[in-house]
Design a protein around this nucleic acid. Structure first.
Lengths: 350, 350
DNA sequence: GACTTTACCCAAACCGGTTCAACTTGCTTA
DNA sequence: TAAGCAAGTTGAACCGGTTTGGGTAAAGTC
């Protein structure tokens, strides 16, 4: 508990004394917020140099100046980050650092509202980036009550007045469905998210239903939480109940790992027997089952954009748009193929 | 640039007023450094709860006491965090939060000494946890010069006077080799790290050489940087040059993903044709090639221990040991089997 | 020449805590 | 019974900066 002092750094007072001025003047000389006579400024800078002075960020922050630090709040929901998430972190970090800000990742195992409140109130950070947005998100509510600038990566149910960047989930699932239909598939299964409080999950499920209606397809869904294991089981269940499906869409790379294993284990060849489209891109996937067709959820673009917007907010620069919906990309690989027929002969599931 | 003040961040003054005491008393009630009457303390805590008060680390720090904040410095070297790393983060976070400290992950994209200096110098954090230690590590040098408490996860070349926790890398590789020898393998390949500045990499390579000498095995190595792709190529290269190997050890889960793909692609069945042992455990691996034999590098134990030691350091509690070498665990799975013979008929590589 | 403006500098208040010295009380103890 | 001591509480100083509101002297305006 003993306070550590870091070798008693020089303070603004010592600089002021050495330069023969008031500390106010030193402050002005540094910040440039009030005019200081050239001769005086020179004396002050000389003194600063002699003493190797650099102002204490702590004191500055306490006195009300920005800390030039932003926090990314990203709860560690699953025991591991997925590739996608890391790509978010990396791209955000790049933008933030490039602008001279310090970047903190807040990875409490569960970032609850109280943790967030503590961070916001601590005065440690100037702004907050929030991920994994829920349909009804307490954290957003909290941030709205304070006046700390923040940007959402994702959307809640009610987004009035919020600044956000989000992937267009409806468009994403639509892209996948339309592409498969174009290839001649009529029976498309969706390994879909289970927890619809997660806002992105909600949107893609709704989007799938809408797409099915539009294309007059049956709604075939099998829910899987965000893990490979769940993906494995969900895929087995889906195939068992709907052996007629000729294509599946999987809602996340993490889940796809399991889905691909399942298909392999029951002897369905991709893409000959069944086409697969996965959300996200993933290093692991790429190698585990070469060259998958994916819906790129564009973490770099979304994350980078969000970081940029937050920084603009912090620097009182105008935003061209408050809310940005990023269009998804379809990257065609070798896991999708023309549907030879509605009825193919199926190998008996093991 | 305008300083933002959070609308109504409660201060110690408001708590004091609400509880009808002086702010001094509130401070004492929180820190416990001076006695406070039970009734008073209760009133104070009630007021704190009502106001959702949490003390400002900044102000605390400025007033000369610790900010109860520790930083984990973990450069984003590869484009992605591996499972292992995330498990470190999670376990450290758990311990840190449990002790009432705030936990910051500093994920600068590069291994920058300057960033670290700034953090240390700013006085924002009480202590630092350092990961990805190099044999010759500038950051360690920097931290030694300051007097901020820090704990290494890993080791450098010269560790005199340092507080650290590290997995026993030599023991780890030894465990793997000995186990394979026990199963009758005489030709063991090591998909090994390439960059020997990374201290852990250096130690396991040296350890492998030592083990080979001890067991009178040939040294068969094929280097791969920390990526699945590299693992794929390194495995192909190794098998091509040494088709006689009946077992391989892979130095990291990330690399193993590629190694397993490579073996599959050239038609070597695991464990019938070849045994595989991987460092680390991984969710992805587990499913991509069910039930691998692994050397568990125990990120939870190492990370948690390191966090605990740092906190002890910060609170002037005695450490039972300054340096801890965590023993690795061998978890046997289905990717290793008895070597049927030194010479097996091999399928022609594609 | 009186009046305003501008440039320059400073004292004091403030940010939100911690800590020190002092001041009550109530209870021992010589 | 007076002195001593511990518990409980508080005002004031302090940490190292920023910001506000004067004040003074020189320059500009009419």
């Amino acid at each position: 508990m003993t306070p550590r002092k870091s070798k008693s750094r020089p303070t603004i007072n010592e600089v002021a004394k050495r330069a023969g001025v008031a500390k106010t003047t030193v402050s002005h000389a540094i910040s440039g917020k009030r005019p200081v006579a050239p001769a005086t400024r020179e004396r002050i800078f000389k003194a600063m140099g002699d003493l190797q002075y650099s102002p204490s960020p702590i004191a500055r922050r306490l006195a009300g100046s920005p800390s030039h630090t932003i926090a990314l709040v990203l709860p560690l929901a699953s025991p591991t980050f997925a590739d996608v998430e890391v790509r978010y972190i990396a791209s955000i970090g790049a933008v933030v650092n490039q602008h001279g800000y310090t970047f903190l990742t807040l990875t409490a195992p569960q970032v609850n509202v109280d943790d967030l409140r503590q961070i916001v109130y601590s005065g440690l950070v100037d702004g907050v980036l929030l991920m994994r947005i829920q349909q009804k998100d307490e954290r957003v509510k909290l941030l709205r009550e304070t006046d700390i600038p923040f940007v959402l990566i994702g959307r809640t149910r009610d987004n009035k007045g919020l600044t956000l960047v989000d992937l267009n989930g409806e468009a994403a699932i639509g892209l996948a469905v339309d592409y498969l239909v174009e290839l001649g598939h009529h029976s498309i299964g969706f390994i879909c998210p289970e927890d619809l409080n997660f806002a992105f999950a909600y949107r893609i499920v709704k989007g799938f239903e809408k797409s099915c209606a539009k294309q007059q397809l049956p709604r075939i869904m099998s829910p899987a939480v965000w893990s490979a294991d769940a993906g494995y089981r969900a895929t087995l269940a889906l195939i068992e109940q709907h052996p007629e499906v000729t294509a599946i869409i999987v809602w996340s790379e993490v889940v796809t790992v399991g889905a691909v294993s399942a298909l392999r284990d029951i002897g369905r060849k991709v893409p000959d027997d069944i086409s697969v489209i996965s959300f996200d891109r993933s290093e692991h996937l790429h190698l585990a089952s070469a060259d998958l067709t994916v819906i790129d959820t564009r973490p770099e673009a979304v994350g980078g954009q969000a970081a940029q917007m937050l920084i603009n907010l912090l620097e009182d620069k105008p935003l061209e748009r408050e809310q940005i919906l990023m269009p998804p990309l379809l990257i065609t690989g070798k896991s999708t193929a023309h549907c030879t027929n509605g009825q193919v002969t199926l190998p008996k599931p093991a």
